[in-house]
Write a protein that binds this DNA or RNA. Structure first.
Lengths: 216, 216
DNA sequence: CAGTGTGAAGATGTTCACAGCG
DNA sequence: CGCTGTGAACATCTTCACACTG
């Protein structure tokens, strides 16, 4: 949604890749990881589209848009393709994340084990509640939000997660941006705004439920 | 993504409303609630598009597709429009939800206060861990997953949230569907599948982060 | 000859321009 | 006169058909 506004700053390589394709890249990657685990060496667009319930033509078009890593008559070399995708998504390196808001959702994210095999790791955590400050959660010390901009800058953090109540979400986003954060994942309800080069992803539980409710 | 596959079963009214429009409905609704709180009686497409950072033409097209609730030369009556949207989204009634998996994310959702002013409420919770069974969390007693299908059916639950590890996600989805659930929100990583009339919404933290990482 | 890569056709969604109405 | 509602132009994404190649 929001994201479209900010896709203007691409370099030539990324310029012509539709955001829908980017959306599917993580799916392809996960699919390939499964195939690797199964010991497969080659994958066809058909195999992948079966697993992901989409059209094989779309898989081929997507992959060809990224540079065409397949061999005609054979398919795609799974390991190689996976590392190409990781490189395109820039998940071939670790990204440290600043988490703001250690309430219900925030602390669930802090203790979440699912980051382990991924490119992501929460290394800073902030909250407003002085009771929480100094506490350790999963190896991370909770700091006061007033230190946010400063600490994010010190640690050169590029990604932030906002899990604070609606009222302070925008303020937190501004501080993250001030600290040099380039991508923000927002769990808070309100539609927040970020300046041009920063990318925003909104995840709203209520919104998803409302959509499901429509389709009932 | 997945959802497209299952939009085939619409009645005439819903048939021609693009899913992108449905996607924006919750945003319009939230925007209207803010305007109501501000004491506004009328809203123009311009006002709404400003708040939501989208094109006023799009707002008008969306709303006209739903039936055209505006007055020419004036705008839309906020209260009336809001209740129309609530009715279309079917959030003018309470929906009880079955939560499966009371781990990090699951228990965060159970204690989440954000449901309070919404149409949603978690009234059943299930886990595999026998240690957790019988415990109360936010007024909900945690039951064993083996009872899932039965209990969901008893309570005529129509919505389910899956917050279990990847390996059991599909099994849980099947049981929810067997119990008569019509919409599923899945927090687990794998792309699960549901039969035709059931709607699926995937929320994947890792996927969102991977997309952000691309845009960095 | 099996399966990729891709130009062209088709579908879907967004923006525009302006008619129409309170 | 202002703002909605909407057909038409435009942009974007997906599907198709088939040429091409290892």
């Amino acid at each position: 949604m929001q994201q479209e506004k900010f896709t203007g700053g691409f370099n030539k390589t990324k310029r012509k890749i539709p955001k829908e394709t980017i959306d599917r890249l993580p799916l392809y990657l996960r699919c390939l990881q499964i195939l690797i685990d199964e010991g497969k060496l080659k994958a066809t667009s058909q195999m992948m589209s079966d697993k992901l319930h989409l059209n094989p033509h779309l898989v081929r078009k997507d992959l060809s848009r990224l540079g065409g890593f397949g061999t005609q008559g054979v398919g795609y070399p799974v390991k190689n393709l996976a590392s190409q995708l990781r490189s395109i998504l820039q998940v071939d390196q670790k990204w440290e994340i600043a988490l703001v808001g250690v309430g219900n959702i925030g602390s669930a994210l802090l203790t979440y084990q699912g980051f382990d095999r991924t490119a992501f790791n929460i290394s800073l955590a902030f909250d407003e509640d002085t009771e929480l400050i100094g506490e350790m959660a999963n190896g991370v010390r909770i700091e006061h939000v007033s230190k946010l901009t400063e600490r994010v800058q010190e640690e050169s953090i590029k990604l932030g997660i906002i899990a604070v109540p609606a009222t302070s979400a925008q303020k937190v986003a501004d501080r993250l941006v001030d600290g040099g954060v380039k991508g923000i994942l927002n769990f808070a309800l309100p539609q927040i705004t970020v300046p041009e080069p920063v990318t925003l992803a909104q995840v709203s539980l209520i919104k998803e439920l409302e959509k499901l409710s429509f389709y009932l």
